[in-house]
Design a protein around this nucleic acid. Sequence first.
DNA 1: CGAAAAGTTGATTGTCTTCAAAACTGGTGG
DNA 2: CCACCAGTTTTGAAGACAATCAACTTTTCG
Lengths: 252, 252
Amino acid sequence: MQVRQPTPAVQTLPSPGAIKVACSNCSLRELCLPMGLSPDELARVDAVITTRRKIKRKTPLFRNGERFHALYAIRTGVFKTCVVAEDGRDQVTGFQMAGEIVGLDGIVNDHHTCDAIALEDSEVCVLPFDRIGELSREVGALQHHLHRVMSREIVREHGVMLLLGTMRAEERLAAFLLNLVQRLQARGFSQSELVLRMTRQEIGSYLGLKLETVSRTFSRFAEEGLIEVHQRHVRILEVERLRALLTPAGAA
Amino acid sequence: MQVRQPTPAVQTLPSPGAIKVACSNCSLRELCLPMGLSPDELARVDAVITTRRKIKRKTPLFRNGERFHALYAIRTGVFKTCVVAEDGRDQVTGFQMAGEIVGLDGIVNDHHTCDAIALEDSEVCVLPFDRIGELSREVGALQHHLHRVMSREIVREHGVMLLLGTMRAEERLAAFLLNLVQRLQARGFSQSELVLRMTRQEIGSYLGLKLETVSRTFSRFAEEGLIEVHQRHVRILEVERLRALLTPAGAA
DNA sequence: CGAAAAGTTGATTGTCTTCAAAACTGGTGG
DNA sequence: CCACCAGTTTTGAAGACAATCAACTTTTCG
């Protein structure tokens, strides 16, 4: 996602010349799995995380059915994950960005149960799961982080279930936009401007809506002066009114 | 849940006189966390899991906001877990039965983020999380099981998202019933008869439907001869036609 | 540059929700 | 033990919201 802020928090994301491949000098360190580790613990993690993979736009990082052997930490770019039913309908289960971990679905049966597709040219760190498992037996903080990453994903999905189960179209889209800017802000981007890396169709799939409904709801938000939309470029004009959409009647 | 089969697989669930409190002689051993552990590994787990808690119907095992310190393995009974938004609307995120683990949501922030409520008088084993963590550093199989339990929950929730995002009322209810009997069957109960421990309202919350819609859909299924419904007692008459509801057009 | 993909907007339909009333169930106390 | 009452369930009628169908515009990318 885009629109870098003048006063950024965590930065130097792209690092084009690419220095050493190591968590210890990765700008996402404090957002990613090795968050809060001591220097020597970090060194041990570095020893395990040796490979990166570049994933081209519209290309899978992994696919449903593939053997699971690693988690992936996103360095740059954005991914979507989606599950498909036997009859072909599919559901986007999430959009992941820098510092987030994908692949947790593969642990339970040693095979991935969803697709992870890059929405733009991206780069991930490969975290071989058995090595991570071994190391986390020795480094307590890492073990706890791993548990937290999985637990966080469970809690996130609870939120999505709430959204899908109880919200109307406007509320869903408002929640979606607010979640997005919040995560972007944590990465040093603007809290009011964003570039969607996904199509209306993909947003709709995530939110349990048809693409036409997403489009219409964007238009309505724009008419009401809540946001400004130019294709995938969105500027949030009135965060508070957008937030208010999520607490319709009496906020407890 | 009910209706014990004449030819049961895993059984003696209630154990009324209550023998020793130990995974090693628990009938749910092969369904629960210690699945597949060796006898001496099992003994070490026994040392950590020393307490049980009885939870009365309609009573919370834990509540949103409470400090997290343990996972719970359900021994008998059924629970629901639900999240609530600030504005009060709530969403049932799952129904859990014997052998299943609840409380994973609490790991990430050391506080529970949902309520777990007993739907009938129930009993759980308390798994102190720090002790489990310690032990899983030494017992590799336990570590892996714990990871699998969390991953399984993530995958389960993907399925719920697919349901909430793409299915119509009939499909949702069919999926719900089929999931329920499948899990009951794995526990030695009938694959065609079940007693719902939850209200229409709770089913509706889980499925993203209003209780009236759930009721109507039950009635429609009954009219069509798919099931027989007497209050919370459900008998499945035509599993195949029920399954067929889930693959509407062309099954891939 | 041209074709394919993505997005917008309108009209109509369908499904589920809402509102309402009545019937049933199960638990409690007289 | 029975009556009663709150909670649950069923069913109907009307209304709302999003889906569908369709046409057209804009953008993207080879």
